[in-house]
């Protein structure tokens, strides 16, 4: 299976761990990722909410380049996933917008014909690779690891994607396959505050605190997430949250690919685990443990 890979800006800087682990895991499971040629920033929610045609034109530039390759685009960043999908939907839906966008793209000899599919690695894992194959590659079952599966907003909403919008089960099914346990986690789709962490910190800290609180109260060893911005808000602002609310949160926030990578027997540097602020002790124990499936 071959895909165009669109890492997005944050995976090349603050969230290198996600980038590294995502590539390693998908390669390990037999996918070939080809980084999209000269991709540009998708514009994120911010650009989209301020300038419409411009934001659509720059997001579509990536899609037009991918269209030439003829492959599905895989992007791990939740925001990129939503924006690229949304841009595709907008121009597909409106000839007026498509004409405008193509008028912009023709400046550099590009054209978009609305044929690209934008996918999330979680979608690829569940629907293309399949849990059977993941099980075959399992080397270190995550027995006893309790995970709070945090989806955040952008990969399940606004449009129906690869999973249910009110109760997605992809991550739960994935982690169950590799031996981990899910905890009751009613906040799995609740907003972490997103970019408000920069502009309106009080509001975002409260939202993030509720998520951390819910995960810890239900006995999770770690929170698994699919979104770079959620990971940042929940992990890097934990100290600030503790200070503001007088709490004592200390919970590791891992990307779902990092947890999966440990189960697949990948090395620490292939998963960027050292880049996280908090170590998950139980996951470290499993990591140091022996392989069960030596034959692979």
């Amino acid at each position: 299976m071959k895909y165009s890979y669109y890492p997005g800006c944050s995976l090349h800087s603050v969230h290198k761990g996600y980038d590294i682990s995502c590539r390693s895991v998908l390669n390990c499971l037999g996918c070939e990722l080809k980084e999209l040629e000269d991709w540009n920033c998708c514009g994120a929610t911010i650009y989209m909410s301020i300038k419409r045609t411009t934001s659509l034109a720059i997001a579509t530039r990536n899609l037009a380049i991918a269209e030439k390759e003829g492959l599905d685009v895989v992007t791990p960043c939740s925001s990129c996933y939503t924006i690229l999908n949304k841009a595709h939907k907008y121009v597909k839906n409106s000839e007026e917008l498509l004409d405008k966008v193509n008028a912009c793209l023709s400046e550099v000899g590009l054209e978009y014909n609305c044929t690209v599919r934008v996918r999330h690695p979680l979608d690829v894992l569940i629907n293309d690779i399949g849990l059977e194959i993941v099980k075959l590659h399992l080397k270190k079952p995550l027995n006893g690891l309790k995970i709070a599966n945090y989806y955040g907003c952008q990969i399940v909403r606004p449009d129906k994607g690869f999973d249910d919008r009110e109760n997605p089960r992809s991550m739960e099914n994935l982690f169950e396959t590799i031996g981990a346990e899910e905890v009751y986690f009613p906040n799995k789709l609740r907003c972490c505050g997103g970019m408000l962490m920069t502009t309106y910190e009080d509001a975002a800290l409260k939202l993030s605190e509720e998520i951390l609180d819910s995960a810890e109260e239900n006995g999770a060893d770690c929170i698994a997430t699919t979104c770079p911005l959620c990971q940042m808000n929940l992990e890097a602002y934990q100290q600030k949250i503790n200070k503001k609310f007088g709490t004592n949160h200390h919970i590791p926030i891992l990307f779902f690919t990092q947890i999966l990578g440990v189960a697949l027997g990948l090395k620490e540097e292939e998963l960027g685990l050292e880049k996280n602020f908090y170590r998950c002790e139980k996951l470290d124990e499993i990591y140091k443990g022996s392989l069960v499936n030596e034959s692979l």
Binding site: K51, T53, T54, A57, R61, K100, A103, C104, E107, V108
Partner: peptide, 20 residues
């Protein structure tokens, strides 16, 4: 980080801004 075709990218933006 800078994309290779930054000039083309700016052309796209300049054109798109007319619509915005």
């Amino acid at each position: 980080p800078k994309i290779k075709d930054i000039n083309g990218f700016r052309k796209i933006i300049k054109k798109a801004q007319e619509f915005d």
